[in-house]
């Protein structure tokens, strides 16, 4: 039996429309698939990507099977194997041009529009960062990861994914990593995620600098929190 399509005819029409109107440069996405530990979601991620590329020639996916040792080596060198607790290696979406804007798990439910927005921003080479926030981000020079733990139904989570990804796009030392909590349960358990959005900021040694639960709508204040956490650590 043929698998049911992810997008309805109506979805396809509006996505096509959106892509035609708003995509300029081609956006390349590396998609890491873990058929051992996250089979179902990896298969879904693959199907999702295949349906998307049918709608536009401006989105390209490169597929990597995490069973392959060369792929693992590459992931290791790119510091993509962050789930040391559940050892789940996919599905992970990484934008080739801005490798700091990352989705651990499918950007599903409320997160999908942010994934689309990321694609549009990258394709047009423009970002959603105001002057005051840019100034604050400029003073962050340490390598940090922002883990944004989410669930698909969380309406407040996309605000945090969006801002962390915009930060990652304008500052190469910052990675914004959305993590679908239920696809990475051991990792989420390790960081004690019992409410979302849950934000954990870690340094390059994976030491936690700060964490909190809840949305922060203002990117400027989000940047402040990161700065403060780094300063605290230095002290």
């Amino acid at each position: 039996m043929a698998e049911e399509k992810i997008f309805s005819e109506e979805d396809i029409k509006s996505l096509k429309d959106m892509f035609d109107k708003s995509l300029k440069d081609t956006v390349e996405i590396d998609l890491y698939l873990d058929y051992e530990k996250n089979k179902e979601t990896s298969e879904f991620a693959k199907r999702l990507s295949e349906e998307l590329i049918k709608l536009t020639d401006k989105i390209k996916f490169n597929y990597y099977d995490t069973k392959d040792s060369k792929v693992l080596e590459d992931m290791n060198s790119k510091k993509l194997l962050i789930d040391k607790y559940g050892n789940r290696k996919g599905p992970i979406f990484v934008f080739k041009k801005y490798y700091g804007a990352i989705y651990y798990g499918i950007p599903s439910g409320e997160e999908f529009p942010i994934f689309l927005e990321d694609i549009i921003h990258i394709s047009n080479n423009n970002f959603d960062i105001d002057g005051a926030t840019a100034k604050k981000l400029d003073s962050i020079n340490k390598n940090i990861d922002i883990y944004v733990f989410v669930t698909p139904t969380c309406p407040y989570c996309p605000y945090m994914t969006h801002n962390s990804h915009q930060f990652a796009m304008v500052k190469s030392n910052i990675r914004g990593i959305m993590i679908e909590s239920y696809e990475f349960p051991e990792f989420s358990e390790h960081y004690k995620v019992y409410g979302v959005p849950h934000i954990t900021i870690v340094d390059e040694n994976s030491d936690t600098l700060t964490e909190w639960e809840g949305m922060l709508p203002e990117p400027e204040m989000f940047a402040d929190r990161i700065r403060e956490a780094i300063e605290q650590k230095v002290k």
Binding site: D11, L48, S108, F112, P113, L116, I129, D130
Partner: peptide, 14 residues
């Protein structure tokens, strides 16, 4: 799995 297509949270930064 459900995927939403649109969001409101993108600011226009003007």
């Amino acid at each position: 799995m459900e995927l939403k297509l649109s969001t409101n949270i993108i600011k226009d930064n003007k």
